[in-house]
Write a protein that binds this DNA or RNA. Structure first.
Length: 865
RNA sequence: GGGGAGAUGGCGAAACCGGCAGCCGCAUCGGACUUAAAAUCCGAAGGCCUUCGGGCCGUGCGGGUUCGAAUCCCGCUCUCCCCA
């Protein structure tokens, strides 16, 4: 064989060609090769954290998807920006380092090299000249610079915030390292303890983060999740004076100011600043004990409404401002309870046990007064029936607002409070300010100096980056201070502005920091005077299509939007939103096997016996289930192995052929040969492996084009249908249907290979090109077509070829399919009906036709009696 | 606990605006080629029944709307994902 299909040879050849010719470099405006007339398209993957285990086939799904889209967009004439980089700072590298003693810088370099090798093996058309690494000083220099922009605008501040502390490990732990109040490592008890931390004031943007969701083309489900997360609620702040000598006052937030007249007690968060001051000596011991217990709980446990309510009386009383001074109904006890969170609203609530579930439970548990102030509408159950009524109704026992429906009662109550100076309307959000400090080593140092007198000043721009000091031992210190605090020479510095001694800030930024602006750096990666130039941003921004897992629905996508909006306000970017369209690819799952007891059996111990599966050692019958890929299940599939065995083109095709990009679906290595066969059949259609010629003569340059008739005409229709179906697949991201269309065309062409023309073959290869780019390029070259298929113009389907002259129309009787008739494609209603009557005559005989539904080009339905 | 997505043959799936359910593959079975096997090519195939004409059932379950529902509405079950 002189021209066998040799995936490895073809793929190596073209990957080298793309690299050597910078085929996918996207020049910026003003650079050589930039085409100002072409529209731009910025398609971005969520960049990966380069873990030690490398890419698996699930990561590859999104990357292959965006690559197919990017390649087709180039063929559609767009300037395509399609970059890739590494979200390289973060906890896992540091934990790995603590275990192995290998510096995170080394492991990160190895891991990114491995990731890049894997991505290149897949034949992805990234512009590698724009590669970024968030842990590289040339990158984090600008992360620090942008942080200072936030700092300048008053959006970064320090606060005492509770963090997880593990006494046993003598360290601060991140949220994700604490599970049910115990350390993930070692399972030791943890407590929340206050520590001074950097916070970012994302709450200042809460409203805009909600409102601007209307500007972007994102899945509604993600928008809903973000709105939920931000959790806007309207209500009022009301001031309750505390009884006694102190002039203390407690401000509560409520969404139901109309129920003020039913507030019979207050509950403060255990951490509330007032607690200390108002607790009576008799209650002090109980209060202190309760506070200590609350500190050990996570917010989840505390907020869990199903749990029995706990709380402690402070001994103090407050005055409900709805009532006259001295009115005993206005004298309400003040409790503390852990279901009230310090960070939400004002950290204090007024309790209306008649109309709030949790307050109701609490009052019943502790024997507090329950008063009805909202009468349920007719038919609904209320306090009279022993039920806590929380919906809208009519105000009763509520003085000035009696008789009003809940919405009006709310408004009137606020008016009444404002008039008396007792409260005001307020909107509050569940969203909390963002804890931005970590007491960790492997992250961006804060570019801040603590100078004499306690002030904190930014490091001047020209002194950036503040380099992460070289340290060998970066375990957290036993006193809870950050590892950087031990880099003594690094910490001790001078303030370049005054020449006076200063101390560096020793916290580092969280793993999210680098991903808060990377899409901007990609626009102008090598800029060393600014994070990115205005010209580049104005041309490339915003990202047209952002693809990643739905896992990042809130955290990353909210943080990224927040930073982008700050940049927008600072005049650094020209759009209020960073990502115009968002698309979530599905999870790639894998089969796993469980035995009769439900125990999981590793995939490599499983053998297929026809349609069933058995355990190789025991012969026990197993059930196939679908679950995520995990090392522990031994069902992780590595793309390297797949490519080694079948080639990158087959691998890419299978990734896309599995199903719609958005769906979760199981990887099934057994299915790959189908795609492999497709690739080989394409090759054989074009190349006679035993001949001398690199391509069958009928497809070579200068080959005679047969007339458009008979089988050739049928194939011509097929090509147009193929392109139309492929185009359609790109609007819905169900690229599997484009591949199905190619297979259909191939099946047809294989039946009458001599009828296939060079022009049809070229167009087929063009459609193939985004999916199987190496083979497409090879065939394109062998056909002697000009340039590269990657840069050729995507074919357009001609509607005239999309429909046959005669079409088949189903005929139904009473909605049941009874016959199929052939009619000319433009046949009108009466003609179709006549044909249908004839076609379904047997089924109409002796029946009375009551109604006929004729949908031209679609169907006919006879309704008979 | 809250939020999101989903359920179609043995398996992955297709089906545009409500109009022939199951395109295209996998696995399976039959045939051709071969000394043989692999590869390749051709063909069958949702289930049940059949007098071989065809008939009945069928898109997680139960209702509804409609000439007509995988698709729309109401109620339920189950699965997956995310957050803390």
């Amino acid at each position: 064989m002189k021209h066998p299909y040799d995936a490895r040879a073809i793929e190596t050849k073209w990957q080298r060609h793309w690299k050597d010719s910078n085929a996918f470099r996207a020049p910026n405006p003003g650079e050589p090769g930039f085409d100002p007339n072409a529209p731009k398209f910025y398609v971005l993957d969520m960049f990966p954290y380069p873990s030690g285990s490398g890419l698996h086939v699930g990561h590859a799904l999104g990357y292959v998807g965006t690559d197919v889209i990017a390649r087709r967009k180039r063929m559609n004439g767009f300037n395509v920006l399609h970059p890739m980089g590494w979200d390289a700072f973060g906890l896992p590298a540091e934990q790995y380092a603590l275990q192995t003693g290998k510096h995170p810088r080394e492991t990160t370099a190895e891991n990114t090299a491995n990731f890049k090798r894997q991505l290149e093996l897949i034949g992805l058309s990234y512009d590698w000249s724009r590669e970024v690494d968030t842990s590289d000083p040339t990158y984090y220099r600008w992360t620090q610079w942008l942080f200072l922009k936030l700092h300048e605008r008053g959006l970064a501040y320090q606060a005492e915030v509770p963090v997880w502390w593990c006494e046993e490990l003598k360290t601060v732990l991140a949220n994700e390292e604490v599970i049910n109040g115990r350390s993930e490592r070692g399972n030791f008890p943890c407590v929340r303890r206050p520590l001074k931390q950097w916070m970012l004031k994302i709450t200042a943007y809460a409203e805009r983060l909600i409102v601007d969701l209307d500007l972007i083309d994102w899945p509604e489900s993600i928008k809903i999740q973000q709105r939920e997360w931000i959790g806007r609620s309207e209500g009022a702040e009301i001031r309750f004076a505390i009884e006694g000598a102190s002039k203390a006052e407690s401000t509560v937030f409520t969404t139901r100011p109309d129920t003020l007249w039913g507030a019979t007690f207050l509950v403060l968060a255990p951490e509330h600043a007032l607690v200390q001051a108002i607790t009576t000596p008799a209650q002090r011991a109980a209060v202190d004990a309760y506070k200590a217990a609350a500190a050990a709980k996570s917010e989840l446990e505390r907020g869990d409404a199903s749990k029995t309510k706990t709380g402690v009386f402070t001994g103090a009383y407050a005055h409900n401002p709805a009532f006259e001074a001295g009115d005993p109904k206005g004298r309400v006890p003040v409790w503390i309870a852990d279901y009230v969170l310090a960070g939400y609203g004002t950290g204090a609530i007024m309790c209306v046990p008649g109309h709030d579930e949790r307050d109701h439970e609490f009052a019943k548990t502790f024997g507090l007064e329950i008063r009805e102030v909202v009468k349920p509408p007719k038919g609904a159950k209320g306090l009279a029936d022993g039920v806590c009524f929380t919906e809208h109704g009519t105000a009763v026992n509520s003085g000035p607002i009696d008789g009003l429906a809940t919405p009006e009662a709310k408004a009137k109550a606020i008016e009444w409070l404002v008039a008396r100076g007792l409260g005001k309307a307020r909107v509050t959000y569940k969203l909390r300010d963002w804890l931005f400090s970590r007491q960790r080593y492997w992250g961006e140092p804060f570019p801040l100096l603590h100078v004499e007198g306690g002030a904190i000043v930014p490091v001047p721009e020209d002194a950036l980056p503040v380099l992460l000091p070289e340290m060998r031992d970066f375990k957290p210190s036993p006193d809870g201070s950050a590892p950087l605090a031990r880099a003594k020479e690094w910490v001790t510095t001078i303030d370049p502005r005054t020449g006076k001694p200063a101390r560096r800030d020793t916290d580092t930024m969280p793993g999210w920091a680098g991903s808060c602006w990377y899409w901007l750096r990609f626009m102008d990666t090598r800029n060393d005077r600014a994070p990115f130039s205005k010209e580049a941003e104005r041309y490339w921004g915003p990202v047209d299509l952002y693809v990643g897992g739905a896992a990042h629905a809130v955290m990353h996508l909210l943080y990224a939007r927040f930073w982008h909006k700050v940049f927008f306000d600072a005049g650094l970017v020209s759009t209020p939103e960073p990502f115009q369209k968002l698309f979530n690819q599905g999870m790639v799952e894998a089969f796993a096997y469980e035995d009769a007891t439900g125990r999981l059996v590793a995939s490599d111990e499983v053998e297929a016996r026809g349609a069933s599966y058995v355990q190789r050692t025991s012969g026990a019958e197993l059930k196939q289930i679908v679950t995520k890929m995990a090392k522990s299940l031994k069902n992780v599939v590595n793309p390297d192995d797949m490519i080694e065995e079948h080639g990158a083109d087959t691998f890419r095709l299978y990734e896309m052929f599995m199903g719609p990009l958005a769906d979760s679906k199981p990887w099934n290595t057994r299915d790959i040969p189908g795609c492999r066969r497709f690739v080989e059949r394409v090759w054989r259609l074009f190349v006679d492996a035993d001949a001398d010629a690199p391509i069958r003569p009928q497809f070579a340059r200068g080959a005679k084009e047969p007339a458009l008739e008979g089988a050739t005409l049928a194939l011509e229709r097929g090509v147009h249908r193929l392109v139309a179906r492929a185009d359609d697949s790109f609007t819905h991201f169900n690229l599997n249907t484009a591949i199905a269309a190619m297979m259909t065309f191939l099946n047809d062409a294989t039946k009458t290979p001599e009828a296939l023309t060079r022009s049809q073959a070229l167009r087929f290869v063009q459609v193939l090109a985004p999916f199987a780019p190496h083979m497409a390029e090879e065939l394109w070259q062998r056909m002697g077509a000009p340039g590269e298929v990657a840069k050729s113009a995507w074919p357009r389907p001609d509607p005239a070829y999309l429909v046959d002259d005669e079409i088949e129309i189903p005929v139904q009787v009473n909605g049941k399919h009874r016959a199929t008739v052939k009619v000319p494609k433009d046949a009108e209603g009466p003609a179709i009906e006549a044909a249908a009557r004839a076609g379904a005559a047997v089924h109409l005989e002796g029946k009375e036709v009551v109604k006929v539904v004729v949908v031209p080009k679609r169907l006919v339905n006879f309704v008979v009696r």
